[in-house]
């Protein structure tokens, strides 16, 4: 009887913790949304975060998407050549990069770089009472700290993904032309002809959603960090892991939404 009671007790505790975390997350999200649409708006912080997310993440996103485009061209050729469908390489590279690879790879890279940095910065502010200090200086921490980061995430992720789209397709083109001996002009014409606005739109929509998720979870984990250095470290890990998982879950949900479009 006792093992059963212990099991039920653990199950109850886990359920309560899950519900509490979900409620906290929902409350935090609602406060952030309100902070994003209410005045005052801290322009300087917003621009600083746009540079942090957009400019400083560009090298890592560029490299990742460029090499992903190259890899997808090679792998597609390997498979499609067995069906004598080598001509579809340009199409597959285009669709894979714009709809999937660029948004997802960029999001995972940004989650590792920016999500972690946000959690660490805000977490340190929490444990050194800087967030409490903001409140005593008549400043809403949600408006000053969180809203600029979340808005910058929503704005800059699509910009990064658009650049990633171009570089990914360029990577595929280089492999197609210089490694697989496709005609350069034909490859470019095929890419242009296959290009549909919805491929780009769906990728950019995903990017904006991923930007929101990464910034929100980075801020949430930092904002709720406890203790000292260990608490901040834990918040940083949680921010990256939870953002990466949610990016992959939302990638499927958004792909499903855009599936027949």
């Amino acid at each position: 009887m006792e093992p059963l009671l212990n099991f039920l007790s653990s199950l109850g505790r886990m359920t309560l913790n899950f519900l509490r975390a979900t409620g906290d997350g929902a409350e935090f999200t609602a406060k952030v949304v309100v902070a994003c649409i209410r005045r005052p708006f801290y322009h300087k912080e917003f621009v600083r975060q746009m540079i942090e997310i957009g400019f400083y993440s560009l090298p890592v996103v560029a490299l990742t998407t460029f090499f992903s485009g190259m890899v997808i061209a090679l792998q597609t050729y390997t498979g499609f050549s067995q069906l004598s469908a080598e001509g579809a390489v340009a199409l597959v590279v285009l669709v894979a990069v714009t709809r999937e690879l660029a948004p997802v790879m960029a999001a995972l890279m940004v989650a590792g770089r920016i999500g972690a940095a946000m959690a660490a910065e805000i977490g340190t502010m929490r444990v050194t009472e800087q967030i409490d200090a903001l409140s005593t200086l008549n400043t809403n921490p949600y408006q000053y700290l969180i809203a600029p980061r979340v808005l910058a995430g929503i704005v800059m992720m699509p910009v990064l993904v658009l650049i990633g789209d171009i570089l990914g397709v360029c990577g595929g083109y280089l492999v197609g032309v210089y490694k697989l001996d496709f005609n350069a002009t034909t490859y470019l014409i095929n890419t242009w002809n296959y290009l549909k606005p919805m491929d780009i739109i769906s990728g950019l929509t995903k990017a904006a959603v991923f930007g929101f998720i990464i910034a929100l979870l980075g801020c949430y984990n930092g904002f709720h960090s406890k203790g000292g250095a260990q608490g901040v470290g834990q918040a940083t890990t949680n921010a990256v892991v939870s953002a990466s998982i949610l990016v992959l879950i939302f990638n499927y949900l958004l792909t499903e939404a855009f599936f027949n479009v």
Partner: peptide
Amino acid sequence: KNIGMLFQGAALFD
């Protein structure tokens, strides 16, 4: 009406 607060570690914004 308004307050001022000195925190233990000063809590200055880095």
